[in-house]
Simulated scan of single mutants.
Amino acid sequence: MHNSYWYLALLLLDTLLFCFILIKKRNMQPLLLLLTMIGLAYIIETIIFNFLGSYDYHPKIIKHFSFYDSEVGAFVSNAFSLPVIATLIAVFHLNWIWKIIFSGLFVGIEWLFLKLHIYEHHWWKLVYTGFGLLGYFSIAKMFYKWIIQPQNRFQHNLLLYLITGSISASAHILPMLFFLNRFYRPGWFENIGRDSIAFAAIFYLCDSLFYCGMVQMNWKFKWALYLVTGLLMFIVNQFLISVGILHSRIWWDQFYYVGLSLMMILLTGIVDRRLSKAS
């Protein structure tokens, strides 16, 4: 349990910090930016962590699969903690000195986790974290400007995709980690956990693009949008089962993902309308 305390403490502190941001700003813009930065973090993690094996986390929260346990650590550290700080920097218009301070702070936390043996590098280095965060924090300030003012079509679609992806990825992958409701076996990696999460990442990247495209089409009957979405998700799941990639382990698994697709269409539509409004 020693390992998990550090990650849970980090999660608690960042949750409190984000609550502080919401209280101070009293609008939904910080939430939209947080989801945008989580979506960006997921894409970065998919590349360097899931596919390139940059590092491993050892929170010892999940016992059954070591890669799933590492995925939880990556979520706490990179897919939540970093986006919260990026949101803080952007919404309070902190200057480059603060970017350097927070980048150094995270490098220090990473160094501490290495010394505590609750995190390990493979080919990754501390310097990559430092310089990468400077860029990540700068991107957050750019995205925030897009959120608080009217966007062009490219800016709007990129924000919508990242926000949709952050929700879709979380809702798709977290049940797999904690409930083992399904796993994927495309055969890309020998480790079943890594293989499963890698395919799930590609799945969410594709379905997020689908949701964004669907809500921006002119549907005469809204019920048809939900019917097509739910039916297509069911068909895709059945196809993946038939070719041996998807292994559904719990009775509610496929109902959940069909229901999730319908919820994602609803949420994507809400975000699409929200982003279309000039603040």
Rank of each mutant, 00 (worst) to 15 (best):
M1E: 09
N3T: 15
Y7D: 10
L8H: 10
L10I: 06
L11H: 11
L13D: 01
T15G: 11
F20R: 03
L22N: 01
L22G: 02
K25F: 01
R26I: 12
L31F: 10
L33F: 14
L33Q: 15
L35R: 10
T36G: 01
A41I: 06
I44V: 15
I44H: 03
I47S: 08
F51H: 15
Y55L: 10
P59C: 06
P59I: 09
K60T: 08
I61M: 04
F67W: 04
F67A: 05
F67T: 04
F75L: 14
V76I: 14
V76T: 04
S77A: 12
S77R: 04
S81L: 07
I85A: 00
T87M: 14
L88Y: 11
V91A: 00
W96F: 13
K99R: 07
F102L: 01
F102V: 00
L112R: 06
H117V: 15
I118G: 11
W123M: 03
L126W: 04
L126E: 07
T129K: 00
F131N: 05
G135S: 01
F137L: 03
I139V: 14
K141W: 06
Y144V: 08
I148W: 11
Q149G: 13
Q151M: 13
Q151L: 10
R153G: 12
R153S: 14
H156Q: 14
L160Y: 07
Y161Q: 14
L162C: 13
L162M: 13
L162R: 07
I167Q: 05
I167W: 11
S168L: 14
S170A: 15
S170H: 08
I173Y: 04
M176F: 12
F179D: 02
F179P: 06
F179M: 05
F179R: 04
R182S: 09
R182P: 09
P186G: 02
W188D: 08
I192Q: 13
I192N: 06
G193S: 13
R194K: 13
R194E: 04
S196T: 02
I197G: 00
F199D: 02
A201F: 05
A201Y: 07
I202V: 15
F203T: 04
F203N: 09
Y204H: 10
C206M: 03
S208H: 10
M214N: 09
V215S: 03
Q216F: 08
K222F: 01
A224C: 05
V228M: 12
Q238W: 15
F239S: 02
I241L: 02
V243I: 15
I245P: 01
L246Q: 08
W251K: 01
W251S: 01
W252E: 07
Q254T: 05
Q254A: 02
Y257S: 05
Y257E: 05
L260C: 04
S261Q: 14
L262E: 08
M263Y: 07
M264Q: 12
I270F: 09
A278K: 13
